[in-house]
Design a protein around this nucleic acid. Sequence first.
DNA 1: ACCGGAAGTATCCTATAGGATTCGACGGTG
DNA 2: CACCGTCGAATCCTATAGGATACTTCCGGT
Lengths: 234, 234
Amino acid sequence: MNGAPTNEAGGRAPVTPLPRRQMLADDVHEAIKALIMDHAIEPGARVSIDGLARQLGVSPTPVREALARLESAELVVKEPLRGYRTTPLLNREQLEDLYQFRLLLEPWAAARAAERLSDEGRERLRAEMGSCDAPRDTTYDAYKALTAHDTRFHVLVAELAGSAQVRQAFERTHCHLHVFRLSYNRGIGLQTLDEHRSITDAILAGDPQAAEAAMRGHLETALYERLLPVSDSS
Amino acid sequence: MNGAPTNEAGGRAPVTPLPRRQMLADDVHEAIKALIMDHAIEPGARVSIDGLARQLGVSPTPVREALARLESAELVVKEPLRGYRTTPLLNREQLEDLYQFRLLLEPWAAARAAERLSDEGRERLRAEMGSCDAPRDTTYDAYKALTAHDTRFHVLVAELAGSAQVRQAFERTHCHLHVFRLSYNRGIGLQTLDEHRSITDAILAGDPQAAEAAMRGHLETALYERLLPVSDSS
DNA sequence: ACCGGAAGTATCCTATAGGATTCGACGGTG
DNA sequence: CACCGTCGAATCCTATAGGATACTTCCGGT
């Protein structure tokens, strides 16, 4: 019953883990995350369980499960008999703390990625950098695509470093989501792509010190030149 | 509007956030975590939703919510239409990765704690170190108490460092739970307390370099002298 | 003896209903 | 005019029921 045991035609693809795309709760999870990112639910606003259930056309049970997961991700907070509430936007202090935390992890990850680079990793880096086309306009979708590339790039560096803990810790910060919520209507600028290319070149060259320095400079530039001015104006 | 505006009798305690202890799902969450830690549910074993519900005497709904939270904490994994399964024990590689990750965060946190030590922090450190009485026996409860102290100590150092991100990242690793599962029947030894005292002394002395070195030595000793020999024997 | 197929059981997933609690509003009293 | 008790609506929390799916076991055929 599993995966055509007597399929003589194509025994090539070894594991197509049969996507098993089900789980309404998972779709609800993504839908709510999208609502938060798009400011359809304002930061700090209360979010009703069966209100969301009615809005999404499902029963409250999967909504409850999705909110429980989002609570572990620090995207919503639960007030025991009063409902859920979205976490407020990051202030300047929290933003600096977040980037200080990234500075502890990511330069180290870049250096390790440069040290233990394999052919497969080299190809994945090239593919990611090749897939990001520089967006010409400053539309919402273009900004969203650039953010998605930024997320994939930093996760990829963490993976190439070979540390599952660093990758998970980075993913659990949801830094891109917070940054997205902070300045979702501003253009990040093409400078990000140039800095990513510098990091990529250092990693591909197998130069740990250069990779570490490039990543450190990238994070510091992002914080001090791109994010804090926006945060100050609010 | 918050907190007794015209209370002339006792305006002393400003915020007693009225614990609001309810939420069966939260108790279920703690109960399941305790079951995993005590090996009542073996690592890698399947865990049934309504099986747990019957065992705990509640309905499946809060169990489902608790498992969703545990899934975000990487303590169980979900196989979409087949149920939940506890995560397997850490192997040697994952254990080394975990401690490499801690080495990125905690020595830095110790140094920062030494730099920005306040009177309140000094008092909290003294209180924590004073509360841990050296256990004479090697019983299960004594080991459990020592683990609890170890958790509180490392979280406290992260808090004194002033970085919420570092504290959250450390807590989300659940390193104590993994270590507990690995060697729950072995004595950690009193060496841990001595090393904690060395770290505490360096922080209280306001010496960042000494604190960083002490924390680094503590982690390396814990990994190479206390954990890996146990992991190798299995 | 080995393999393929089918029925049965257990489990999961979603929806719905009822009990308990909180928040807001209204009217009464000092 | 200010304060307080009471009422009502909305919400949350838990329990239960029904439909669908996957795993196990048994049986017949080769």
